[in-house]
Amino acid sequence: MADVLFPVSLDQALDLLAKTEAPAVLAGGTDLLVQVRQGKKTPGIFVSLDRIEGAQEILETETEIIIRAGAPLARIMAHPAIRDHGSVLAQALAVLGSPQIRNMGTLGGNIMTASPAGDSLPPLYALDARVQLAGPEGFRRMPVRDFIQGPGKTALAPGEILWQANFTKPAPGTCHWFEKVGQRTALSISMVSLAALFRPDPDGRVSKVSLAWGSVGPTIVESPETETFLLNKPLTREVLAGAGDLARQAVRPISDIRATADFRRQVAGNLLMRLETPAKGKRLTRY
């Protein structure tokens, strides 16, 4: 039997992590408790984030959006500030798991699982998000792309807690796009996903392109070559096809029970075709 503890402050939580044997941080539990059931994890004690003051907050400053690790996914995707400034993330969370999973699961949990198929990760990469880790020595920050080190692996040190993710608000007029390709519509794990941010200029050429793919490598894949290729070009079918070829070279997919590497490579490029649009300054609606 493992005890379940409910610290009410971050300090208390850090203290518990330091003092207990084999602690597991329990956020939404939607991944952790499945792993426990499968025998992949056997925590000596659960330290819940449920009742830590401020651990579920979503904050907006003039320039930034801050999402605390314990914020439930459903609340994030419905939050006006996220809808306005982080639509790509809201779009991704809207297709994560199921309504129940989104009520339970947290952003921190999704990041900490560090799955290449984690639906929140491509948007966070595309938004150039940073994470803030709390430890006995205080806070440290790093880009989410540095924090994620491999499948299931993060830079979190023992005794630390992932406290928040934050990102700078994209410039007005930025298009947000997320698409997940899964084996079914809901309750699905992504076979390939794409998060895209780009800003079309009045003449239709794009600046500020930011792309991130899920499930096509050990971690989220970005492709500076593809982004550079698209810069200052209109997103015509021909241009996007060219970008798709570059994307297919950039990804490093594997074959598994859900999809073949070939499928993933193909689709990673194909998904760019959806960006073909006359939309100027408008967010694309999901397909």
């Binding site: 084996q183 079914r184 519509t185 809901a186 309750l187 699905s188 794990i189 029970i257 859900r258």
Partner: peptide
Amino acid sequence: LTRDLSTYIIPGALD
């Protein structure tokens, strides 16, 4: 290989 409902896919309401 398909040992659970996340790998053996039955259709949901949206499918």
